[in-house]
Amino acid sequence: MAAIESALLQTGRLDTLARQDTAVHRIDPRAKVITTACFVLLVVSFDKYTVAAMIPFLVYPLALLTVGRVPPGFVLTRLALVSPFAVVIGVFNPLIDHEPMVRLGPVVITGGWLSFASILLRFLLTLSAALLLIATTGFNRVCLALERFRVPPVFVVQLLLLYRYLFVLAREAARVLRAYRLRAIRSRGVSLRVYGSLVGSLLLRTLDRGQRVYTAMGCRGFNGILHPSIPLRFRTVDAAFVFGWCAFFIVARLYPLPQHLGHAVLEFLS
């Protein structure tokens, strides 16, 4: 329960980070959304055994991290929290795929290990980019950008409210759990039978709250479209941000930069 509460406070930290004023924060949210989308698409488009060619892509999250003054520890702990998903997806590859791909002296690296590493790297790149997008933009401004891109308002409103009420719902869940634990002194954890009714009561509360929130919105004239009051201005800097980064991503995608760099170094040495 303490873990839930502290995780929630950390969610607040994302908002605090997003309210900083740096060069990255000042970039129009639309520019950052396009750039991040382009980044993610190109990263996932790599062949399943690619590892080295993806490394130049690390520059983008590292740049956002440094210029946007986001503490690296903040990003890393969050990545670590969700990393089990990526590990579970890739962990069986080394057992299934025994095809030798790379020989480093006596060490043979199989295709399975390569694809596993590739999955982890993709996970690291895409997730850190998404996280940094929010940490340097703010969730509401990301949603605002989506709205301007004509993403159906239904989805944008859903996203915004999900983000807003995650906090409230998790706190409600924590209260229910605390009440349970105080009266179930001997039992460890929540038994399956009780678990069902706990989740059920939480669902009912959620529905109730949903109804109340909707009523409150209706009272202030809500008609399905949010009108965020933040005006957006797409400046030359924003365009430069998009084109500069996207050009870099495309070059890095088409040409294996580390390989070229290696060749260049070798040529220089010989």
Partner: peptide
Amino acid sequence: DQLFMPSVREEVAFGPL
């Protein structure tokens, strides 16, 4: 139940907008 916008300013602007 009533405060759903991401910032106080947007919250207060919600009705008028």
